[in-house]
Design a protein around this nucleic acid. Structure first.
Lengths: 212, 212
DNA sequence: GTTGAAATTAGTACGAA
DNA sequence: TTCGTACTAATTTCAAC
């Protein structure tokens, strides 16, 4: 139910568009860094780790929350232990005029953890967590297939989740974090380009986003 | 760096395998439900919302943490506001013998938020967050392409993130939550099966997981 | 933006149901 | 096990610097 696209700083955000309401400085980023790996740390302890006063930490903490830079705090659950041992990705091709309906149906499927609109061969990718393989089949055939907006699906299973970072932030020891220096052409034409493939949006898909 | 597969209850978990150390009852699940939508709630407030005593809430809270059912608490960040407005999915084909090396390289790429091994045409899907489109290109051509373990990549961009639930749990108003009643064949053969496609693992891929 | 005290709340221990 | 209470420690708030 949490629609994270409405004020659209996710995914569809303009490149380099930083700090609309709040100017995020290094201390803000450090706070976020700590909070993403320990969402329950006290503000007092946070202040100490960042090296600022408690009052300052409270002010910044509240500002980040109010600004929306921190969207929420959440507990990461071990799905296996909670009885949802199967994870699958379902790539969906959506009839363009019916995008809004597709969204509404998604909101009614609690097994969907994530849904994103993508470029490439399909229009959307959804990630589902269910108890067993049969439930994936039920989900795809009974629920998704009966949505008129769904033209086709392709399902793959997740065999193992190798890595999940709480939430990526700029400056994680990265070189091209914010302004992103673009290497000159000469510097990068030694790259084996034949290995890779970029997949743009299918024709006429520009309309998809405005569709709702 | 957070390798969530080692004790493998994620993704590769057996169907219905619930409560290895801890038997999770309805109260445990309700606690998880509240915690996933507000990871910073006090245990006192939690106790009240669940309808148990404070002491009991502390006991269960600690048990869930110790058992690993709660893996960590984290803050959800608005990436756009933090300067990482571009999200992409990179599907990677990995040379089987080199899986371990691929993992090691991943750990050194802070822009990778998520990596999962999948069935289907590709071997892994990674999700990256970067500042701009150029950074995706740099990432794929300079970093991934130079890993010998990487045979090929296919990149799609995420245009919009429609839905993200903190973490899916069983019993979210779902019918087939835990034991997952499998519908009899007669009940489901009215489904338009032509719409969908399940994609199994490529040949010889069973070896992949044992590879590290 | 900081420090330090008061008020509040969180976390612990333990005996009883 | 769970609950209730009393106790201790820590956090948050707020005022003055």
């Amino acid at each position: 139910m949490s629609d994270i696209s409405r004020n659209g700083h996710s995914g569809s955000g303009q490149p380099g568009r930083i700090g609309i309401g709040l100017e995020l400085d290094d201390i803000h980023l450090k706070i976020l860094e700590i909070l993403r790996e320990n969402g329950r740390i006290s503000v007092a302890a946070l202040a100490e780790r960042v090296g600022i006063s408690r009052a300052n930490a409270y002010t910044r903490f509240e500002a980040l929350r109010a600004d929306g830079a921190i969207k929420r705090f959440t507990a990461e659950i071990d799905h296996g232990r909670a009885g949802l041992g199967i994870t699958a990705l379902i790539f969906v091709t959506v009839r363009q005029q019916m995008w809004k309906q597709f969204r509404a149906e998604l909101a009614r499927m609690p097994e969907v953890e994530y849904c994103a609109i993508t470029t490439g061969q399909h229009d959307a990718m959804i990630q589902v967590r269910v108890a067993d393989v049969a439930a994936v089949h039920t989900m795809v055939t009974d629920r998704l297939a009966n949505i008129p907006a769904v033209k086709a699906t392709e399902t793959v299973f997740i065999l193992d989740e190798v890595l999940r970072r709480p939430y990526v932030l700029p400056g994680d020891g990265r070189q091209a974090a914010r302004p992103a220096r673009r290497p000159a052409q000469e510097e990068r034409d030694d790259v084996p380009l034949g290995k890779m493939r970029f997949v743009g949006a299918a024709e006429g898909r520009a309309a998809l986003q405005k569709d709702d």
